[in-house]
Write a protein that binds this DNA or RNA. Structure first.
Lengths: 198, 198
DNA sequence: CCAATAATATACCAATTGGTATATTTTAAA
DNA sequence: TTTAAAATATACCAATTGGTATATTATTGG
């Protein structure tokens, strides 16, 4: 059984995470947080050392939910190459899903923290590396399974896919137009077909 | 001859633009601005209505410089397809150049203004559309000149290029690693060769 | 060189910022 | 049910926020 405090901490994070994600670090005030949670400063500062620790925890909270969701989606197939198609499939609906999170945490916090909040930025970097490692592993498994050409540099392609996806997320949000997301995913599917397949 | 006030206005913009671009709107305070310029609030508010107008003017100032630089680079060839290669060529060195601007204004202000500052976001949208129109025009000229396949949808490809470039800018800045920029530009060159060429 | 005006500096405003010390309430084990 | 401890609320802090009214200084055309 969870203690009351653990539940409160959880509640604060799930309430505050989308706010930080939407507004950014500086534009989110402690009074935004007390207002949204209905709690007082005592409760917030009792559970988190300061604003920065809260922002980092909130980022981790959002990323954890996102990663779990992706991982679950990738379970729909065991085939490495099909898993790659499942990634583009996941991002086809990412605009709607990520809106619930307050936007894409990697993009938003990545840009927001740049030259602003070093510890926060470090956490974003770690997440990006983790994602790319996972995609690279899928590609490597595909090569071993004979599904993907041995010519392919797994990490390079993982980074290419990640770069294209982040570009599509940025354009989709900024222009408020899902065309970018959908078209980029079509482009990625074509890449998998034409360049990656053995 | 420019009046003293016009020179001051110019000076404020060139001093303040990179600060807004780096920090974002909320994280840039009026005292940051007075400190950086060495001017007082009287001078700032005498030249700009308020913080928002200053931020918008600063964004336009940066974009103007950037667009001029790109336009000049594209003058190096008259051939549409060579102009496309010149675009990727320009962005190969974009990390170093854009650092002087305080980062990529489209990416930084685009993300920062999302759900935060509607007038600022509108200005970012207009810039993105303008850029895409220009690229689409180059592609259309290439089709007319017989350099580019008639199968190509100019605007779709302009958006794809823009999306990939923005993704590369984001990854390069967030990871502080130019690999993303360089590799994406190689990828774009390959696309031009393999998909666009007539 | 002078006067009208434009430009900038100064001093101030209420509101809000992140954070803390302390008081109060709630929790949970005995 | 009592009680020690944990969790939350309250009241406060100095510093900073964006912005303004007014005083002072520069500028520039005649």
């Amino acid at each position: 059984m969870q203690t009351k405090a653990e539940l409160t901490k959880q509640f604060i994070l799930e309430t505050v995470a989308p706010i930080f994600n939407q507004n950014g670090y500086a534009a989110t005030s402690m009074s935004d947080i007390t207002q949204a949670t209905g709690l007082t400063k005592g409760a917030i500062y009792g559970n988190f050392k300061n604003k920065e620790e809260l922002a980092i925890s909130a980022f981790k909270f959002t990323v954890k939910a996102l990663m779990k969701r992706i991982a679950r989606h990738l379970e729909l197939s065991d085939s490495p190459i099909q898993k790659l198609f499942l990634i583009s499939d996941f991002y086809r609906n990412y605009y709607d899903y990520s809106k619930q999170l307050g936007g894409c945490p990697v993009l938003n916090i990545g840009v927001d923290a740049n030259n602003q909040n070093t510890p926060l930025l470090e956490n974003v970097k770690i997440v990006i590396e983790k994602i790319q490692d996972q995609v690279a592993t899928i590609i490597e498994n595909g090569i071993e399974a004979g599904e993907i050409s041995t010519e392919i540099n797994a990490m390079q392609y993982a980074k290419r896919l990640d770069t294209m996806i982040q570009g599509a997320v940025f354009m989709t949000y900024t222009m408020d137009d899902e065309f970018y997301m959908k078209d980029t995913m079509n482009q990625i599917d074509q890449m998998i077909h034409n360049e990656l397949k053995a």
